[in-house]
């Protein structure tokens, strides 16, 4: 365990734990778009920038992304110093220039007092901030279906060769965790479409409610040895089934007691 100071408060952290985890644990609000606890830090959005210094640095300080910087003994962290706020303001300003129509970015920029960008706006820009969270989560799930392709202006998130990805199972983890809700999918009439690939959705045999995709369920059955019958009924019908079974047992007890 190491002792460090965050905004004047001495806190304990594990040696080598990243600063952002410690800051979040202390319930200090530091914005971050590309961070997720399930995957390794990437440092793409730069919004989690903090000011660090040490007693022996004689007033010198450094500005680092807290999602990548490890906690160490005697570190003094300031998450909302004036310079840090200025840096974040510049970052959201740049984000706003690149993604002027993105609601999440507009909201975040307004928090920092940026209502219109001071840079030249990208007119035909999309809402993808290229943080790579979707690709990292896809890798963590073990599918490796999407990745970033191209460089510079042409960089984008895409399945291989811009075709329907063969390894995608339609689990929707990429779309659910996209910080700007850019990844589109549609579910209609028992089919789910994501990354131009069409998946058959499993239907509850009791009420007809659509659950996860058949491919994803089959993957879980194969990888994690879960019986396929578990996926054929929705959660609500599962609960009703359990209540019916338990009710039958309780009614036997009642009959025996009377």
């Amino acid at each position: 365990m190491v002792n460090l100071t965050i905004n004047g408060k001495v806190v304990q952290a594990e040696e080598g734990e990243v600063l952002l985890s410690v800051i979040r644990r202390e319930k200090i609000d530091v914005p971050a778009l590309c961070h997720h606890e399930a995957v390794e830090a990437f440092g793409a959005c730069r919004l989690c920038v903090v000011e660090i210094t040490r007693q022996e640095w004689d007033g010198w300080c450094d500005y680092v992304t807290s999602c990548l910087y490890p906690a160490s003994d005697g570190l003094i962290v300031n998450t909302h110093a004036a310079k840090v706020n200025d840096l974040r303001k510049t970052i959201v300003d740049l984000f706003l220039a690149r993604h002027p129509k993105c609601p999440e970015i507009i909201e975040l920029a307004a928090e920092y007092g940026v209502y219109s960008t001071t840079y030249q706006t990208v007119v035909d820009g999309d809402n993808c901030i290229l943080c790579g969270l979707c690709t990292r989560i896809c890798d963590r799930m073990g599918f490796h279906a999407i990745s970033t392709v191209g460089r510079g202006h042409g960089k984008e998130v895409s399945p291989p060769l811009h075709k329907a990805p063969p390894d995608c199972t339609g689990c929707l983890a990429c779309a659910q965790n996209c910080p700007t809700s850019f990844i589109e999918y549609s579910a209609a009439k028992g089919f789910l479409t994501i990354w131009d690939k069409k998946f058959e959705l499993l239907k509850c045999s009791g009420c007809g409610k659509e659950t996860i995709t058949k491919v994803f369920a089959e993957h879980l059955c194969q990888e994690r040895k879960i019986p396929f019958e578990y996926f054929q009924i929705c959660d609500e019908c599962h609960r009703k089934q359990l209540a019916a079974t338990m009710g039958e047992i309780t009614s036997w007890d009642r009959e025996a007691a009377s």
Binding site: A38, A173, F216, D235, H238
Partner: peptide
């Protein structure tokens, strides 16, 4: 369930045979 780590893939919701992951 660690909410920070959860990626909301709904696998547990579909897999629970008692429907208790909601």
């Amino acid at each position: 369930l660690n909410q920070e780590v959860c990626v909301k893939c709904m696998a547990c919701v579909a897999a629970c045979p008692f429907g208790c992951s909601v």
